[in-house]
């Protein structure tokens, strides 16, 4: 069933300031290339295209001129209690001690898509066809992420390969790989965001900025009441934006 919350000494988390996101898509573009997602010619079919990071457009549902919009970048929420992990029949996806990152291992995945069905955030993508790059473009593939064949499920990994690099760098410099400085490991979307709307760090480490950010009264998470206990936090000073993070009954 729904499993229990796991505690990790390191809990990597992202804090996204919606009030700063202009919806430009730089995070998505960064993610695509960092993680070797193929360029998709028919990317306008959003139900078929792969974008580990996706920017949603939020509206307050009112008419002009009271209408308001906001953009919500959505990486994998790295749930503390992931709906997708317990359902996997072959342990291709796990929530283990790795900083609380929900792993997804492609050579183990059989492509049953049960996790795709279980995830309410739509962060899981299936390889419908073998990936194809325009001639020569495979030379620009990132060496840090493997290319997935068709038929397996993939998702945002919080660029965990950058963590392994950061740990290696710490080891080489005689530092503690399990106590990285703030900023030693950040995801590509966080690094490249032109607005600085995204922050990343160890939620449990008081030396990391995000540790404080998640305590903001404006911080909230998506679908909290389902008990997914996500590690991605959003911040907005706008109440209607916060309200769109979850479902509420009229009486609430």
């Amino acid at each position: 069933m729904s499993g229990q919350k796991m505690e990790f000494p390191i809990t990597w988390g992202m804090v996204i300031d919606i009030d700063k996101c202009t919806g430009c898509g730089a995070c998505m573009a960064s993610c695509q290339t960092e993680n070797n997602v193929e360029p998709q010619r028919e990317a306008s079919n959003k139900l078929r295209s792969t974008s580990w990071m996706t920017v949603y457009e939020l509206t307050n549902g009112k008419s002009f001129p009271d209408h308001d919009i906001a953009y919500l970048p959505r990486p994998c929420q790295q749930c503390g209690n992931p709906p997708c992990v317990s359902v996997c029949p072959v342990i291709a996806t796990e929530k283990n001690e790795n900083g609380g990152i929900v792993s997804q291992v492609y050579p183990r995945c059989i492509g049953c898509r049960y996790c795709v069905a279980a995830c309410p955030y739509h962060v899981r993508y299936f390889g419908w066809f073998d990936p194809v790059w325009p001639e020569g473009m495979q030379k620009t593939l990132s060496p840090l992420t493997s290319v997935r064949p068709r038929g397996v499920v993939e998702k945002c990994t919080f660029c965990h390969h950058r963590w392994t690099l950061a740990k290696d760098a710490a080891r080489a410099n005689g530092k503690d790989p399990d106590n990285l400085d703030d900023g030693a490991y950040v995801t590509t979307c966080v690094q490249n965001c032109p607005s600085g709307a995204l922050a990343f760090g160890d939620l449990k480490n008081p030396k990391h900025k995000v540790h404080e950010l998640i305590k903001s009264p404006y911080a909230y998470r998506l679908l909290e009441r389902l008990g997914t206990d996500t590690q991605v936090y959003y911040i907005s000073r706008r109440e209607w934006v916060r309200k769109l993070g979850d479902n509420y009954l009229k009486s609430e």
Partner: peptide, 10 residues
């Protein structure tokens, strides 16, 4: 040592 997936997989 941990045998978590992402210790070795990418």
């Amino acid at each position: 040592t941990s045998n978590a997936c992402y210790v070795c997989h990418k």
